[in-house]
């Protein structure tokens, strides 16, 4: 098995940056000079730096210092699974809040995140952490400072008890 660190992960940010710079220039190309001057200078700098980076990466591949792969980027499968799980839960948190309301979404999110990271043996801890967190968030964000989060009938009823 190839033990050399993989180069491909290091290419993600430069390639993304170049793509974004090209997109940026395409949106400012027809604008007056002052509206595009910073974009042009910064995109030029990105071009030069990416070129220098490409030379360095090329040399690292030719000398065999790095391989063309993802070696060293991913951690152990358990941590990796937890990380992807937490990312999916975070996206779910945003998508579900308008549907489930504020309190239920926070409770479900915190509960399931503790389980994903700590394992099912932490059921009791997950429940009380989620309960505590949703109570504090409810009191701070909805009762005390009254931020306009998406709410449902449960939130409104609970809010009615305090305001």
């Amino acid at each position: 098995m190839d033990k050399r660190p993989g180069l491909l992960p290091e290419l993600i940010i430069p390639i993304g940056t170049i793509a974004f710079a090209i997109y940026y220039l395409s949106t400012v190309w027809d604008l007056p000079f002052q509206a595009k001057v910073v974009g042009i200078y910064v995109a030029s700098a990105i071009g030069i730096l990416s070129f220098l980076l490409a030379i360095r990466f090329g040399r690292e591949i030719l000398t065999g210092a790095k391989s063309l792969g993802f070696a060293g980027f991913f951690s152990d499968p358990v941590s990796e699974g937890r990380r992807w799980g937490v990312l999916a839960l975070s996206i779910g948190f945003i998508l579900l809040m308008p549907v489930l309301g504020f309190v239920v979404t926070i409770f479900a999110f915190v509960f399931s995140t503790v389980i994903v990271i700590g394992g099912v043996q932490r059921l009791k801890a997950a429940f009380f952490t989620a309960l505590g967190m949703s109570t504090v968030a409810f009191l701070v964000f909805l009762v005390l400072v009254q931020v306009r989060f998406p709410t449902n009938i449960i939130d409104q009823t609970l809010k009615g008890l305090f305001i």
């Binding site: 940010i13 430069p14 940026y24 604008l31 002052q34 910064v42 990105i46 730096l49």
Partner: peptide, 29 residues
Amino acid sequence: MIKGLLAGMLGLLIGAIGTDFIYSEPRAT
């Protein structure tokens, strides 16, 4: 140096998203 500067430049370009200060033309939105 190269990676650090590239990260800084990416930040500067992200910071330049949105309408410009004089003509209010949208950029990379």
